[in-house]
Simulated assay, not measured.
Amino acid sequence: MQQLISPPARPSADPGSPESLAAVYAYPDQVNHGLPWLRANMVAGLDGGARLDGLSEGLSGDADKLIFGVLRALSDVVLVGAETVRAEGYRPARAPAAFAAARRAAGQAPAPVIAIVSRSLGLDLAAPLFTEPLVRTVVITTADSPAESRRAVAEVADVIVAGEGSVDLPAAVAALAGRGWTRLLTEGGPRLLGQLAAADLLDELCLSLAPLITAGDAPRIIHGAEMPDAQRMRLVSLIEQKGFLFTRYQRLHPDSAPSAT
């Protein structure tokens, strides 16, 4: 693994170590002052497809899985759509042991919270995500979601109500930050990521580019939602390993662009 572009003052020795990757992907200082920072972590093939044989797993590799683990270990909460939870067979998050001390020092829980966005509440409440989490799973839904389903979910997870008809994502992010979870990570899927981008909530995109051409009808990593304007991003780090490219982009604001520290 080699760092082709790295943020200033980042270590370049052993770029593939968890410690080095944690430095490269560190959240900005604003998270220590109660301000949320939402990053997305996605993988795509060279032709833009976000899935292979229906799953993102087919596009992944060893280095991608390592970075996936580091990004989770740095986060307070992982925001994910219910469709992705069902399709990818989500399980409770576990932070690598190497990050235990750093998480304690930062006042974080032993593992990030999984927060599921679901309007219909069509969730398998007997799944390990609800029966075996290190930290209680959160479900974000709407005021008009099925009342009986909401009561059942509340027995095994914390419920956040945000919006009516569809989940109000700005309100959801504010509710998560209000619980002290300012280091936000979303893993999509493409529909949720599109909604977050359209709501102007996406601060950062970590995109793993797999050296594969998949063709077919797989969606792009951001799919479905219409954005009023294209969001300009700036490249802040680039890592290569066995043909995979691991990019990190941050929002480019008209007057200034935040730097990770």
Rank of each mutant, 00 (worst) to 15 (best):
R248N: 08
G54W: 06
Y25V: 01
G165S: 15
V167T: 13
I116V: 15
G189I: 07
A127Y: 01
Q30V: 12
P211V: 14
R91A: 07
K242H: 10
G194T: 02
G180Y: 05
S60C: 15
F99C: 09
A230N: 08
F68H: 07
A101S: 13
Q241G: 08
N32G: 06
D62R: 11
A23D: 08
Q231T: 12
R183M: 12
P28N: 10
A111N: 08
E57R: 12
E88C: 04
A143I: 13
D14K: 12
A100Y: 03
N41Y: 03
D14C: 13
P219K: 06
R72T: 04
A198S: 12
V156E: 09
F244G: 01
C206T: 04
R191T: 09
R51G: 01
G165K: 06
V153W: 05
G165R: 10
V139E: 01
L193D: 01
P133R: 05
V156R: 15
A174K: 09
D203H: 05
D229K: 11
V117C: 11
P170D: 15
S145F: 09
V78A: 00
A260G: 06
V85P: 01
S120I: 14
Q195S: 07
A93T: 06
W181Q: 00
L193H: 00
T142N: 14
L252Q: 13
A257G: 07
P219F: 13
D200K: 05
L4Q: 11
L196D: 00
D144L: 08
V159G: 12
Q195R: 04
